[in-house]
Write a protein that binds this DNA or RNA. Structure first.
Length: 628
DNA sequence: CCCCCCCC
């Protein structure tokens, strides 16, 4: 079948050019495709008729072409736009630099089936170089390449075209290097790593390094640290244990480039890491790490996968993500004792904001919390921070989080700096974390209005809603009850009508004492609706401004008017109520029961602030910008 | 081989 002629010799011209850039728009044939990182991007085996080049990647925006099979085996393409990434294995050895072509714009000229393979192309050298003019097919006289078990680069793993991939490759350069000179070995791109390859050597920058952590479990105890390394192709997490910690921790520096050879690959558990790679490396005795002090400009300095703050609203709790934001406010470091474990903790709360018009609370822990003293609104980038469901959504550092303050190599940091200093500072944005959170449990659903707080809850979980509302009516008569006088017992006592009160729980005989406590039903209303809410002692006392003893005594003394005045004065006072909604079955009826968890009296400024944030939230939801 | 990461 007739087809457009291939641009014969194109790969040879690329190989022989400086930097690999040509002005050509070559016509090429795709011999095979292979997904990398679970289809995150595609690597192609491509022929120009004379040479077959495995170092071709499809730009991710063109993934669709492979997925919908527009690009498949033996199809002929015209490359409208491409770039060439040169990865230097060694500065002093041009022949060992590898040129990776990334196809940016592609037209598919012919489907593949009816064409078949065009010509009999020769595989390029493993480092992407050309040994001899393709016209002189003298491959038999050139030294054989290292056996494919070498696996240095991933080339040996057949793409979808074994007949081509397994052809003997012409080779002029030996890749057997002295073990202490990794720089002479062929370098594998990180994104190509898989457990099916051995003997790889990476040239990668350490972009993040954790502290050393010890652990103790049923299998014993030990210590470990992990780091993220990156090259132009991607990033991967590397973990060292025990002796590996002693051997490597002090020698590894964040920001520096190393040759790394040897280590076991295993599936990465995404649950614990934000690093984008299907696998991770476990270092062992065989692992060699040697600093690369040559020109390393080609290796990226950072490897973040930032999630915009607004996007965290839709991110599951417990996810580990990378975040960048301006520190809008910094709390003090505080130390407290956890009730459950009696252990002492130090934490510090920050508020992070970004251009997505959203802000979120971030809790730092331990040493990180103590040392974080930046009052001047720095930009911080965090690699590996945990999303928490507390108070809506919040963030919490873990021992493997790394914080980069005002990072110079992160373009987003400069953009954020500019945004914050030119108006962002005073912009009203949506708060993903309700101030102070709710008292435990998980928060879901919308925050902000009584109408939303009244919606039934599917399932059995509780829902927490923060509303700015006023009490408009009280059930005064049943506002207080006589409770057990025992400290911390809130049970209602039975009045024996002989001056003694029996608590069914504490069972103190002939107890003449009791304590008045509130269990107050109030109708709480905002512009959207009203809802009946139960207030227990502490919260009721806050809105009424009087102890239950005062109200109880007034009722008991038949001075209802005294009690009534207390209720009257509490009407229509705006508060920020945290409401807890839970479905309850009552007479076969499934209805929402609402109790008040916290009460906060708001100043006028605070009320305005709350309403502005609520407007910002709604605008974010509708994707509109509020008129100022 | 970790992966607990804390509290309201």
């Amino acid at each position: 079948m007739a087809h457009t002629p291939l641009s014969e010799g194109f790969f040879e011209r690329v190989a022989r050019s400086d930097g690999g850039q040509t002005d050509e728009q070559p016509v090429l044939q795709v011999i095979g495709t292979r997904p990398l990182n679970n289809g995150e991007r595609y690597r192609l085996l491509v022929s120009d008729g004379l040479y077959c080049n495995p170092w071709v990647m499809l730009a991710t925006q063109l993934n669709e072409l492979v997925i919908n099979k527009a690009i498949h085996r033996f199809c002929v393409i015209k490359v409208r736009k491409h770039i060439c990434n040169v990865m230097n294995a060694s500065k002093n050895s041009d022949s060992s630099s590898r040129k990776i072509l990334i196809l940016l714009e592609v037209d598919v000229l012919h489907e593949g089936e009816s064409i078949g393979q065009i010509g009999n192309p020769t595989q390029l050298n493993q480092d992407g170089s050309v040994s001899a003019p393709a016209s002189s097919e003298t491959t038999a006289t050139t030294p054989a390449p290292k056996p494919t078990t070498n696996g240095v680069s991933g080339v040996k793993r057949p793409l979808s075209s074994p007949n081509v991939a397994e052809q003997p490759k012409p080779k002029t350069k030996s890749h057997v290097a002295a073990s202490n000179d990794l720089s002479k070995e062929t370098i594998a791109p990180i994104s190509f790593l898989s457990p099916y390859q051995n003997n790889w050597v990476l040239r990668a920058r350490v972009t993040q390094k954790s502290d050393i952590r010890t652990y103790s479990n049923s299998r014993g105890e030990g210590k470990l640290f992990s780091m993220t390394i990156a090259d132009e192709s991607g990033e991967i997490r590397v973990t060292f244990f025990n002796e590996g910690v002693d051997k490597n921790f002090d020698n590894l520096e964040v920001g520096r480039v190393y040759y790394i050879k040897g280590g076991r690959l295993k599936a990465a558990n995404k649950q614990y890491s934000s690093v984008k790679h299907e696998y991770e490396i476990t270092g062992g005795n065989e692992t060699q790490i040697i600093p690369c002090d040559e020109d390393t400009k080609d290796i990226p300095r950072t490897s973040f996968n930032f999630v915009r703050i607004k996007q965290i609203a839709d991110t599951n709790a417990d996810a580990i993500i990378d975040v960048i934001g301006v520190v809008k406010s910094v709390g003090d470091a505080t130390t407290f004792t956890a009730k459950s474990s009696q252990r002492e903790f130090t934490k510090r709360e920050l508020v992070l904001v970004d251009e997505s018009r959203a802000e979120i609370n971030l809790t730092l822990w331990g040493d990180t919390a103590v040392k974080f003293e930046h009052a001047d609104n720095p930009v911080i980038a965090i690699k590996g921070v945990k999303v928490s469901g507390f108070g809506g959504k919040s963030l919490s550092t873990t021992q493997s989080s790394s914080i980069f303050t005002n990072p110079v190599d992160v373009p987003e940091a400069h953009k954020l700096r500019g945004w914050f200093d030119n108006g962002g500072r005073t912009e009203v944005v949506e708060a993903l974390t309700t101030q102070g959170g709710s008292s435990g449990g998980h928060v879901s659903g919308d925050l902000g209005s009584v109408a939303l707080a009244k919606l039934p809850i599917p399932g059995t979980d509780a829902r927490y809603d923060a509303v700015l509302a006023c009490p408009v009516s009280f059930r005064e008569a049943n506002a207080v009850y006589k409770s057990c006088s025992n400290k911390d017992c809130k049970r209602k006592v039975q009045d024996a009508n002989d001056g003694t009160y029996l608590c069914p729980k504490c069972n103190i005989p002939n107890n003449t004492e009791f304590t008045y406590r509130y269990m107050l039903n109030a109708n709480v209303r905002d512009a959207t609706d009203g809802v009946w809410v139960t207030f227990f002692d502490e919260q009721a006392k806050q809105i009424l401004g009087a102890d239950a003893q005062v109200v109880g005594q007034a009722f008991s003394d038949e001075e209802e008017s005294t009690a009534h005045r207390i209720f009257q004065e509490a009407l229509f006072q705006p508060h920020l109520f945290k409401l807890r909604g839970k479905m309850e079955t009552y007479n076969d009826d499934n209805r929402l029961k609402t109790t008040c968890v916290t009460v906060q009296k708001l100043s006028t400024d605070e009320q305005i602030n709350f309403l502005e944030k609520e407007i910002a939230r709604l605008c974010n939801k509708l994707n509109v910008t509020p008129d100022s």
